[in-house]
Design a protein around this nucleic acid. Structure first.
Lengths: 236, 236
DNA sequence: GTTCGAACATTGTGATCACATTAGCGGCGT
DNA sequence: ACGCCGCTAATGTGATCACAATGTTCGAAC
């Protein structure tokens, strides 16, 4: 019965650029859907089910899922079933600590390479974030927020930490979507303007402080939600 | 002609545990060979060539290579050819900085979970390292040294950073093998005894200092080698 | 002798097929 | 009525095949 492959979530589609390999397209599509929280923790993903949803053969889906597993975005259980990992308080705290550790370092090493054009680009992205916040588009907020951070860190041409940081985002993604959707809109202020001001001054300490505060604000918001982790307790 | 697939390196084989999937076995085998430097930077790896060497179909090799690529251990060029990445001075410094950042953090969070049995286990591994140093087995030194660090950090049951750290090791592996093999034996002293002493005292600061010193010693050794990066410059 | 081009070999990719393992379920026995 | 066992559907895995793209080599034209 094909109905068993039916899923209770809608994938945000992504047009396939012609030069992209199919498995890369599937990977990016699943990645974006995980980052913006379309696929919830505890949800099981099957190769054949996704292949049917995306109208491709199981092969590229296999590769995409295995890559996501190696990045910690999904978890391969002993049964070989693939699920989106659960979140615990300890895991969440550790992920946030690592974000602060790596992202302040990345921002510090990027600072010497910042050009004026980079700052205007970052301001443009920050405007997109504000627009998404204003419109209440939760998924857009996540995606553009990541764009902001990635663009900042990637200014350093020798940056190595971005893939590591993205792995952390992927592990936090499915969970933080739930958290953000439970927050009041007013809590969603970010520290990007402080970060941009620090970039203009070329002040590394201010920049790290802004990045750390930006991350910590999200933590504080989530921690204010009592029993947030229980949402995913009994699902597996 | 099959000879074109011939390789100028010997793979360190690894018996396949029966419960392991073939692609996991291939992955672990390639991973160990990269970590201990059997495969040099600039070397090209082909799916069919490896499949023939290992007597398996191209499929599990594909998955293993893609996973290694997502961890930064190998690099997929625009030609779709897979090579072991080159090393540059900037990249090396950045990788070492990240190692210090992540590994001191990992050690600090592991410290509260250390039990007496963990310390004896670490001492056992350290003995293996000394034996390998004494015997001049360069590859064994790398592998057991990683075992020591991994074992220490993994004592924390909620450890998230180990996969990130292993990614750094993988990127450093092929290069440091060359570096180590050019060093005098006497340079290869480590700071593991200091780390174990700090564990016994439960002193986090001492532990972090020992770990950082352990990593920095390797950096200093490599930097003392003039023109070490040039070895791999013209290969690609 | 040099250079351009066409034929060939090799490689990565994706689809399809075959098989082992596992989960889900219904029936049988106690 | 409860629990154990076997059957069936479904899933992940690995092999083989077909194809497109890339790299290489050999030969012809200037």
């Amino acid at each position: 019965m094909k109905a068993s492959r039916s899923t209770n979530f809608e994938l945000r589609m992504l047009e396939k650029a012609p030069h992209l390999r199919t498995h890369q397209w599937v990977y990016q599509l699943l990645r974006r859907n995980l980052l913006c929280g379309r696929i919830s923790p505890g949800h099981a993903l099957t190769i054949r089910g996704l292949a049917q949803m995306l109208q491709v053969s199981p092969m590229p889906v296999r590769e995409a899922l295995h890559r996501l597993a190696s990045e910690g975005a999904v978890e391969v259980k002993d049964n070989r079933r693939v699920i989106v990992p659960m979140m615990t308080a300890e895991k969440f705290n550790e992920l946030c600590d690592l974000r602060i550790l790596l992202e302040t370092h990345a921002a510090g090493t990027a600072l010497p390479h910042i050009k004026a054009s980079d700052i205007t680009e970052l301001e443009r992205i920050d405007g997109q974030i504000d627009a998404a916040v204003e419109a209440g588009q939760v998924e857009e907020i996540s995606l553009t927020n990541h764009d902001f951070h990635r663009r900042l860190y990637s200014t350093n041409p020798h940056q190595i930490s971005v893939p590591l940081i993205e792995s952390l985002w992927l592990q936090l993604g499915p969970f933080s979507r739930i958290a953000i959707s439970k927050l009041e809109k007013t809590y969603l202020v970010d520290r990007h303007v402080e970060a941009i001001a620090a970039l203009r001054k070329g002040n590394a300490d201010d920049l790290c402080r802004a990045i750390e505060a930006d991350i910590r604000d999200g933590i504080a918001s989530v921690k204010s939600l009592d029993g947030i982790y229980d949402v995913f307790k009994g699902v597996a």
